[in-house]
Structures are given as C-alpha cells and as structure tokens.
Design a protein around this nucleic acid. Structure first.
Length: 484
RNA sequence: GGCGGGUUGGCGGAGAGGUUACGCAGCGGAUUGCAAAUCCGUGAAGACCGGUUCGAUUCCGGUACCCGCCUCCA
C-alpha cells in the first residue's frame, strides 16, 4: 500500500499517515460562510483537499473515505446581506431573505467548485441544521467547568484548558500581551471566546437554556464534525489563517467536551493566495471571485492547474502568465488524450508524488515526462509508420494519472470540446484546404487557414497531409459559415 | 511586540549532503510551400556571512529583505 505522508500542523512535522480505521478514513474541511460568491482564495483549500480526497479514495477505496465540508449559514455578514435587501424594499421577512440568500449562495458555490473539478464531499452539513447539537455541547462544557454564562452570553474559559494555544504555538499570556482586541467586560479572561450570544428580535435566533440566541463562530465545526465523523477522526484542514483562532478554539471546545477522544489527529493548513505578488484585497482592486474568472473564459480546469503548480504549504501567486502556461499545457495534454476511451493505470510516480505531502508540482513534472515520452513515440510512428506499436495504452495511463490530480476529467473538458456537427464541418473545410495545398494552390490554402483562425480554429499540419486542428481561445462556430 | 513561513537559473517551481528536476521563454537543428504545431539538442541557479563535512544550494548559527497570522477572513 502507498504510504501517505502529510505535514501535521499540530506536530510541525511531516508524518506517515495512519488512519484510525482504514475502512472509514474521515476528513473535515472548514467550508464557506455563505453570504457571497466564493473568491479565488476560497477555492484553494477546496482544490487541495480534493486532491487529498482523491488520493485517499485511491489508496483506501472510494467507499472507505468520508469527507465532510460544512456550510456556515448563520453569521453576521449573512444577516447584514439580508438586512440590506430588506432595506432596499424587499417585502419578504428577514428569515425568508436569509434563507433565500444562503440557498442562492450554496447553489453558486456548488456550481463554481464543480467547475474546478472538485468532487462533492460526502456530507455538506449546514450549521442551522445542527443547533441542538451545539446547544448540547455548550451545556456539556458548562457542566464540565470549561464554560460560563455571563451577560446573556456563554463563554469558553481558556484558562480551564491548559493546552490552549498549542496548535498555533502561542501562550495565552503572549496573546494577551499583543492583543488588539476589545475586551468585553464580562469576560473572565480577555482570550475567552463566545460559544453562544443573544439575538435581538430582528435577528435569527434559537431558544436555548440561556435565552434566545445564536451560536458563536467556532462551535458549529466542533458539533458537526462530532455528529458526522465522531469524537475522533483523521484529518482536519483549512487555510492557515484559520489556525488561530478558529481551529485553536475548535480544539479547545472539542477536547474539553470529549476529553477521552483525540478530536482531529492530523491538521492540514494551506498557505494563502496572492495576486500578482500582493495580497488579494478589495482595497487593492485585485479581488475577484471564481465566477469572475470563469466568465472571462478561464476554464475551471485551467484554474485548477494553476493551483496545482504550487505546493499547498507555500504562498501561491495568481498571475496572468501562469494562466497562459496552464492553458497551453492543458491544450496539448487534451490534444493527445482526445480519442482515448479505455481506462488506464495511474503511474506510480504520480501517486507517490501526491502521497508525499501532496506534492502536486512534482506530480505535474512527472505528467510532463509521461506526455513527452508519448509524443516522442507518436512522432516516430507518424514518420516511420508501422515500425512501432500503438501508444493507446500509454495515453490511457497518462489520462488516468492526470485524473488522479483532477485534471483531464471529461466533466471539466467542455472548454475545448467541439460538437460533432461542427467538427464535421471543420473537417470538410480542412479537407478542402488540404486539396488546395496538394494542388499547390497556396493562396487558397492560406486564405482558408486564416479564416479558420478567425473562427478560433487552429490548423496543425501533420506529415503527409495529415489533418489536425484544435479549438482556440476565441472559438466561434458561426464564423465557419461561408469559408468555402 | 508575540507566533509562523519564505528568499532557487530570464520567469514559474520541486527534490536531494556528492549524480539532468520539471514547465515556460531563449538559442541551434529537423520537419514544412510558408507559418503554427511537433520532434531533437542546448546555455543558465539557489539572498548574504560564518560553521559542520572529504564535499552544502541541501544540515547548524547569524544578518538582511519579503510575506502571513495575532481583528471577519481560505
């Protein structure tokens, strides 16, 4: 069996991964707060974890992996978005507006992450469906002396958990020293955080032993992971910015509520995304969503490839140059993968690279080498004809290897596809051009080539009058009319 | 102030204490009516200063610079 190694934030080391139960490997990823379109930074952990999910399924079997990614649908930003609509004159109730907003955002999220070729998790729990579990957990924490009620809030008592700060490598005293937080007067310690807070009448709320209110930010993940994966599970991840306070607080809650359990054994954090060397932010004007890129004609597969070019634990810079490179590479790859339908075997170099702490750049390098060995063979076959065997098996293995990274999947290939009917039409034109070339009527041949290019079809002449073409960046089938 | 990460060839980006990463771009060649595509070949590196070592870009220490988190944030 392939040995998987992962860098565990908790121990700060790369460790061999040993599942609690190989028959049910369990992982949890902190998902989005559903108040708006997913921005590009939201997509990075989704792609990283998709690669991990595919790897685990490959190694342990697809029925032996459980992947949970939550939707946070209770949050002040959601309330604000709904309130803004109400103030803009929307007649619906605030509850309806919130529901509509979260439903809509989840739909967007699914569409955008599907476009990146990310598999849907096995469970996508919504926070609002787990309020009773959160209330139970909070009550349990109070009973165990780790939380207290004050001024209508319930707060976690960080001093009651000596290991607090271990994940992020900081002590409570250090944090207080450098803190820029406003300290609520009812807190016993400045670092105590909210488990439950009161809701006024115009905000969403649920009845609880502490009055009508809503959960704090961190408790949902503790409650949902316990409900769906158990008190101990294998992998928990998210962006490095979640390391503190979110994950630190999750650990405190879960480990105090379930002192006999491990909670998450391995913590994985991806580094942040930059855009042209700078942090993506609205104020710098370099902020954009996944949908913005898709609408610009950058396919989800290209976006995925750009992500995979950088190891997940390094900051990743999104640049136009990388997009160009990724697109050119995928065009070539899809160019040879086209007609192959047989299934292959993922190359061991690829699986080994991914298993080595998700080393996707190395996996891509191995794919480049596979590609080159195939084109080299194809070249020889084309020139010397039957002296070499078919490369069908090699291509099938290449495609299967790429699919281990979530690339070259049929469902994200539409950006290069051409409808059969249109393909026949192009073939007709290309044959006419070949005939003109063979008659040495180069002005006609060049005219046809230029017109095809204008329609976004790139002609690639092969030896001996072989015909090949590719769908270019500005493909427009309407412009094919009247070429002949 | 506290915690953490980074600095590799023109660009992107990995691994490994001693042997070509890989990709893009460039250059030379093949092929081609001409392009494109494709194929073959090829130069180029590891912030700075010390230390360990037969040997370090790779390990250790320091310096400089950059970045992230500490506040909603993937």
């Amino acid at each position: 069996m392939v040995e998987i190694k992962l860098t565990n934030t908790r121990t700060r080391r790369k460790e061999a991964f040993v599942p609690i139960d190989p028959a049910d490997v369990r992982m949890y990823l902190c998902g989005p707060t559903v108040y708006d379109r997913a921005h590009l930074g939201n997509a990075r952990p989704v792609v990283v974890f998709d690669v991990l999910y595919r790897l685990l399924r490959h190694v342990y079997g697809s029925r032996h992996v459980t992947y949970v990614r939550n939707f946070t649908d209770v949050d002040d930003k959601i309330n604000a978005a709904a309130l803004a609509r109400k103030e803009a004159g929307d007649p619906r109730s605030l509850e309806d507006l919130i529901r509509a907003r979260t439903e809509e955002t989840i739909g967007w999220y699914h569409a955008d992450m599907d476009a990146l070729g990310a598999l849907r998790p096995d469970h996508e729990p919504r926070a609002t469906d787990y309020i009773p579990q959160m209330i139970d957990m909070i009550a349990d924490l109070i009973a165990k002396g780790h939380a207290y009620e004050a001024a209508g809030h319930v707060l976690f008592d960080v001093r009651s958990y000596p290991a607090y700060g271990q994940l992020s490598g900081r002590s409570v005293d250090d944090m207080i020293a450098g803190a820029r937080v406003e300290v609520a007067p009812f807190k016993r310690d400045p670092m105590d955080f909210v488990l439950w807070k009161p809701s006024s009448g115009d905000l969403p709320g649920w009845d609880s032993p502490w009055g009508r209110g809503r959960p704090g930010w961190h408790i949902e993940c503790s409650a949902m992971s316990a409900a769906l994966l158990g008190e101990s599970f294998d992998i928990h991840g998210g962006g490095i910015d979640l390391q503190f306070p979110h994950h630190e607080n999750e650990i405190a809650q879960s480990c105090c509520a379930h002192p006999q359990a491990d909670f998450a054994r391995v913590w994985l954090h991806n580094e942040m995304l930059q855009v042209e060397g700078k942090k993506m932010s609205k104020s710098l004007g370099n902020f954009f969503t996944v949908r913005d890129l898709l609408d610009q004609g950058i396919s989800g597969e290209v976006i995925r490839y750009v992500f995979l070019m950088t190891h997940y634990r390094k900051p990743m810079d999104w640049t136009a140059e990388k997009v160009r490179e990724a697109e050119a590479t995928l065009r070539r790859w899809r160019g040879i993968a086209g007609g192959v339908t047989q299934s292959g075997t993922a190359a061991s170099e690829i699986v080994t690279a991914i298993a080595d702490d998700l080393n996707t750049p190395e996996a891509l390098a191995a794919l480049h080498e596979m590609y080159r060995s195939i084109t080299r063979l194809e070249h020889r076959i084309a020139y010397y004809e039957d002296e070499f065997p078919s490369v069908g098996d090699e291509i099938a293995d290449f495609v299967t290897s790429a699919q281990a990274l979530g690339l070259l999947l049929p469902e994200i290939g539409e950006w290069l596809e051409i409808a059969d009917e249109v393909g026949e039409r192009i073939m007709e034109i290309a044959i006419a051009r070949r005939d003109a070339r063979q008659a040495r009527d180069f002005s006609t041949a060049d005219r046809i080539r230029a017109q095809l290019e204008a329609a976004g079809v790139l002609i690639k002449d092969g030896p001996g009058g072989a015909i090949a073409w590719e769908r270019g960046p500005n493909f427009d089938p309407d412009k094919l009319d009247g070429i002949l």
